[in-house]
Structure formats: C-alpha cells, structure tokens
Lab assay of single mutants.
Amino acid sequence: SELMNSSKLIRMLEEDGWRLVRVTGSAHHFKHPKKPGLVTVPHPKKDLPIGTVKSIQKSAGL
C-alpha cells in the first residue's frame, strides 16, 4: 500500500492556503481562511497510510 510523508501532505495543505493554528502532541491542526472546518494531520510521520491521506485531503477539499 502507498504511504505518504506527513511533511509532504502539510506542504500540499499550505499551498492550498491552510495555516497551522494549533499543535496538540503530534496532532497539527490547520484552518483555512475561506474553507470550513479544521483539518488535523499527525506529524511528524514518515508513513501515513494512503487512506488517512485521502481522508485528510477530502476534509481539506483538495
């Protein structure tokens, strides 16, 4: 199965306009000026399962 580095996923979010608002432990929480909701990324993780990545991307509207 495909894995993604959390840094790469965070870069994709930031390029889309998401900004880090809070860190709780290894959970990084992002908000967007125009899009609704809060997106949480486990970080640092070298090997996020593709299912997790897809669900984060979906929440972020990517």
Rank of each mutant, 00 (worst) to 15 (best):
Ser1Asp: 15
Ser1Glu: 15
Ser1Tyr: 03
Ser1Trp: 02
Glu2Gln: 08
Leu3Tyr: 09
Leu3Phe: 11
Leu3Thr: 15
Met4Cys: 11
Met4Val: 09
Asn5Gly: 13
Asn5Val: 09
Ser7Gln: 10
Ser7Pro: 04
Ser7Asn: 10
Ser7Met: 11
Ser7Cys: 14
Ser7Val: 11
Ser7Phe: 12
Ser7Asp: 14
Lys8Val: 15
Lys8Cys: 15
Lys8Trp: 11
Lys8Thr: 15
Lys8Asp: 15
Leu9His: 01
Leu9Ser: 01
Ile10Gly: 01
Arg11Gln: 14
Met12Gln: 10
Met12Asp: 06
Met12Ile: 11
Met12Val: 09
Met12Ala: 08
Met12Leu: 11
Glu14Pro: 00
Glu14Trp: 10
Glu14Phe: 08
Glu15Cys: 10
Asp16Glu: 06
Gly17Asp: 05
Gly17Lys: 03
Gly17Gln: 04
Trp18Ile: 00
Trp18Lys: 00
Trp18Asn: 00
Trp18Gln: 00
Arg19Thr: 11
Arg19Lys: 11
Arg19Cys: 14
Arg19Ile: 15
Leu20Trp: 03
Val21Ala: 09
Arg22Ile: 12
Thr24Glu: 14
Thr24Pro: 01
Gly25Pro: 14
Ser26Gln: 13
Ser26Ile: 13
Ala27Met: 13
His28Ile: 06
His28Asp: 02
His28Gln: 07
His28Pro: 01
His29Asp: 11
His29Gln: 14
Phe30Pro: 00
Phe30Asp: 01
Lys31Pro: 01
Lys31Ser: 10
His32Arg: 01
His32Leu: 00
Pro33Cys: 10
Lys34Tyr: 14
Lys34Arg: 12
Lys35Leu: 04
Lys35Tyr: 03
Pro36Trp: 07
Gly37Trp: 04
Gly37Thr: 05
Leu38Met: 12
Val39Ser: 01
Val39Asn: 00
Val41His: 00
Val41Ile: 06
Pro42Met: 06
His43Lys: 02
His43Glu: 02
His43Gln: 03
Pro44Ile: 04
Pro44Tyr: 05
Pro44Lys: 03
Pro44Gln: 03
Pro44Arg: 04
Lys45Pro: 05
Lys45Gln: 11
Lys46Trp: 09
Asp47Ser: 12
Asp47Tyr: 14
Leu48Trp: 02
Pro49Val: 04
Pro49Tyr: 05
Pro49Leu: 05
Ile50Leu: 14
Gly51Cys: 12
Gly51Thr: 12
Thr52Val: 14
Val53Trp: 06
Lys54His: 07
Lys54Asn: 07
Ser55Gln: 14
Ser55Cys: 13
Ser55His: 14
Ile56Gln: 02
Ile56Arg: 01
Ile56Lys: 01
Ile56Trp: 01
Ile56Asn: 02
Ile56Asp: 01
Gln57Gly: 05
Gln57Ala: 10
Lys58Asp: 12
Lys58Ala: 13
Lys58Gly: 06
Ser59Leu: 15
Ala60Thr: 03
Ala60Ser: 05
Gly61Ser: 05
Gly61Val: 02
Leu62Lys: 04
Leu62Cys: 06
